[in-house]
Structures are given as C-alpha cells and as structure tokens.
Design a protein around this nucleic acid. Structure first.
Lengths: 253, 253
DNA sequence: GCTCATCTCCGGTATCACCGGAACAATTAT
DNA sequence: ATAATTGTTCCGGTGATACCGGAGATGAGC
C-alpha cells in the first residue's frame, strides 16, 4: 500500500471497514477481520472509535452503519440547488407517466442517482438515492457525457473504462462517441436494456448557460410499456420539457 | 485529548473535518484549519485522502461532502424493516391530513428522523431525514421514551441531560416522567411548541411484541390548524391507527 | 464443567500522522 | 506589469500512536 506521504492510512482503513460493514449489511469484529484480512484488534479499535462517535451501532457484537451518514448525505443533498429545483419536476414526471423518474448528477466520474420517484405502475427497481453507476450504462449518464467536452469524456473513460453490464452495454469507445453525437443532436438519450435487462429509459440533460451538463432527468420502465410512439416521441418531449423548466428555474432563483 | 488506547485519533480528526465541512456547507483548507485550530497541512492530508476515496469533492480548493454519504445512509435506511413498512403509512398520513408526517427512531440516545412527507398544506420546516433531536423535545421522542423501561430512560437522561429548546420544553426530570406516564396511558403524545415555536405535533409509538418502542410516527403542523377536536381526537386516532397498521405489518412480513 | 468461538483489553514498537516551513498558484492592489 | 496577499500543495523529520500479538473476558453449545 504505497502511501503518497500526504495520505492518512487510518482514514482509509476506517472507511474500508465502514464500506465492508455496509456491504455485509452489518457484521461482527472477526467477520470483518476475515473479510479485510486485518487483525481483529485493529478492526476492533476502529469499530470502537466509530461507535463512540455515534457513526456506527453495536447490537450485541454486530455492528451496523448508523443514521449519521444519512444526516450527512441528506443535508448535503438538500443544499444542492439542482436537487431542490428538479425534485418537483421529477415527481411530476413520475405521476404523469406512472413510471420511474430519476435525477442524476456526475461525481468522481460516476453517475449518481440523486433522487427517484415511483409512479403508480412503476416496477421494482434496484435504484436508490446515492447509488453510483458507470455513466455510459444509462441514458442519464449518456446525456451528461454528451454535453461535456470530448477531452473530459476521454479522461473519464481512461479512468473508468467501459465495463459491460448487460449484453447491450456500449463497450467500444468509438461507438460511444457516435452515440453521444446522436444524443447531442437529438437533445435526449435512450437506454435500451443497457444497464438492466428488460428496462428502457429516456433521459434529457440539464445544462448550464455554457451548455455544460450539470445533471440529467429521465423516465424508465419495462420494455413492454416503453415502445412505439410513446418511447420515440411522447416521453422524449415530456422529459425535455421538464429539463427545460428546471434549467429556467435554475437561472431565475 | 485522552486516548483510551483503543481509539483511533486519525479517524476522529477525519470525521471532525467532515462534520465541520458539512456545517460550513463547504470550505477551503485554511478556513477549516482556522475553525478546528489545526495546521493547514494536517487538514490538507485528510481532505486529500477523503477526496481520493471519493467521499469529498474538490471544486477549485473548496471542499464539499459528496454523495457517498448519501449512498451509505440511504442504503442502510432501506434495509431497515420499519422504514419500508412505515413509509407508505407516513405518506398516507401526510396526504390525509395535508400536514407534515414523520417517522422517528432512537439511536445513541437521540431521536432520529428517518422519513418525512409533506402534505399539501405543510408549512416549511427544518426537519430532514437523518436529523437528530433530543428525544424529550418531540412528541415522537416522548412516545419512544414512554415505551422503554424507566432505568433505560434514566440512563439516557444521565448522558443527554434535559436541554431546553423553546420555553415549553420539559426540563425537570420528574415532570418528564409524569408526562411519559400520561403518554403511556393515552397511547399517544402531544408536543405543544416544545421544539419549534408555533408548531404542534401528535405522535404514536410503534412497539414490538414486548411493548418496547422501536419507532414512532407523527403528524405536525402549525398551532392554528392543530387545535380543538382535530388536535385532541381526530389526529390521535389517525396516528394510532397508522401505528397499528405498521405494527401488524411488521409482524407478518 | 469444558470447549470453542468471539469480542475486549492491554502494552510494546515500528510506523506514519502530524506539523513547520517552503514552494506554488491565484487573486487583488498598486 | 509588478508586488502583495491569501490560500493551497508539497516535503521531510520526528514523536505520538495506529497497529498488532497475545492474554483475558464473555457466552453459547454440548
């Protein structure tokens, strides 16, 4: 583990433990020690500290991630202008289409779901606020990439690669850039089972005055309902209109 | 700073920085250094590490809390049974009453808002998911305390004290225990401007099979609308009924 | 009561978190 | 333009401490 000098090892360990605890959905000292290949005493020191600070919960030896993370996450979300402005629009999209409606931003080269709302007919989905996905695997991410300078997209891809998630995920760099070109021309993006089998999605970017994407909104639903003119015309218009409203409200508020 | 031996100082520093960053709603290195009375280089080391790990964002020298905390918080919330079961009930309460409806749990002696929904007429409030408040300052917290063993409540008070937040906050231990007795008899609790001036609240506990409170739900709104029979009969019944539905669903799911 | 598994606690030591200081960058004033 | 100022980043030394092994405590299962 090469330390750059300006790097706090204990912090890395602490967050590795938190992250693993989170993935395991709660665990004991020795389970974590085994998972992370660290001595139990080291794990214990960190768990102890974090519990004392009230970031973790200890239920008879089983530790869990506590609500202070929700506090940090939720409050920083509510302070994002785009979240506050976009949220009502996402809700309107969901209730108009009866499907899932989502808001995504980019952070550290990832697509992050900031908010989702479920319409009346929405299917069960694995998305939740805070979830991170590779940008090119969703319509949302593609609209964001489409409205970023090519060199920025290149460097994101250099760092992130082009992982395949389903059979339809775009994995060739040139094909992606072609797609982004289309997205830019049309003003919206599709996702045809590129992240989840059976699911389709339509997304539009939310751009600032320079045309740079700061976020994206979308409607997603099962292939069976997302087809024909609904998929090719109706939904794109709906989503774009919402994106526009958000852009306007961002400027004048 | 007395270290117990089994305590990781760097972790404490890291979270102090995160917490301060959060309170300041983003800050630079030297601002944090001033606030926390630490050398800029130490702050920088931690910020660097946390940004590398993608927990913080760095916008031209101004650091912000990132969405990974939302990820941790939101996912651990969705894995709580009571959240999933109670959420639809909270939403129903909000839409029936047109006021705020809330779900609270206890964690590390604090009352934590797990979820809130706003009805059509709901006033602007400072509550948000993850927010922590002293238990005795809300109707929600009081119902939780009322359905915990007295010795447990005593030790919570020993650690937390009885801070006054408004003029009406209960600050005497005996008066609190009298109130809790009433709450237990009635089956629900009121909050008459004990946390926020002008706001009233009605809450009911969600208990497990042993009668121990695991959470509470409530409706809250401005004094002007929360009065008369609505406040004394209608809302209590509504909230209790919702709590009951949640309890039943918790058992059979 | 014994065994096994797990969590806590403790104390030594090699490591690295912390810090001062200097270089670098950006912004404003002159 | 240039200097002054403010703030960020980098670097290397060193003393505090994170880490670890091992012992003690706890508790479940037989």
């Amino acid at each position: 583990m090469a330390t750059d000098g300006t790097s706090v090892q204990a912090t890395k360990t602490t967050f590795e433990i938190i992250e693993t605890l989170h993935e395991l959905n709660g665990a004991g000292v020795s389970e974590l020690a085994g998972e992370l290949e660290m001595p139990t005493s080291t794990i214990h020191d960190h768990l102890q500290t974090l519990t004392e600070m009230e970031y973790l919960l200890n239920n008879d030896g089983t530790y869990h991630v506590g609500a202070r993370f929700l506090h940090l996450g939720e409050k920083s979300r509510t302070r994002m202008k785009v979240y506050n402005v976009a949220r009502p629009q996402v809700e309107e999209l969901a209730s108009k289409t009866n499907e899932h409606a989502n808001l995504m931003i980019e952070e550290h080269d990832w697509g992050v779901f900031l908010y989702k709302d479920r319409g009346a007919d929405a299917v069960q989905l694995d998305t939740y606020a805070g979830m991170r996905v590779p940008l090119q695997t969703t319509a949302l991410g593609k609209t964001i990439l489409a409205h970023r300078p090519r060199e920025e997209v290149e460097s994101i891809l250099d760092r992130q690669g082009l992982v395949a998630v389903t059979e339809n995920t775009i994995t060739e760099r040139e094909r992606l850039f072609d797609t982004l070109e289309d997205v830019r021309e049309r003003g919206y993006a599709f996702d045809d089972e590129e992240r989840v089998d059976g699911m389709r999605c339509v997304a539009a970017p939310i751009t600032d005055s320079d045309g740079r994407a700061i976020a994206a909104i979308s409607v997603s639903g099962p292939k069976s309902r997302m087809m024909g003119e609904t998929f090719t015309d109706e939904l794109p218009n709906l989503v774009r209109r919402s994106a526009n409203v958000i852009e306007v409200n961002l400027t004048y508020s």
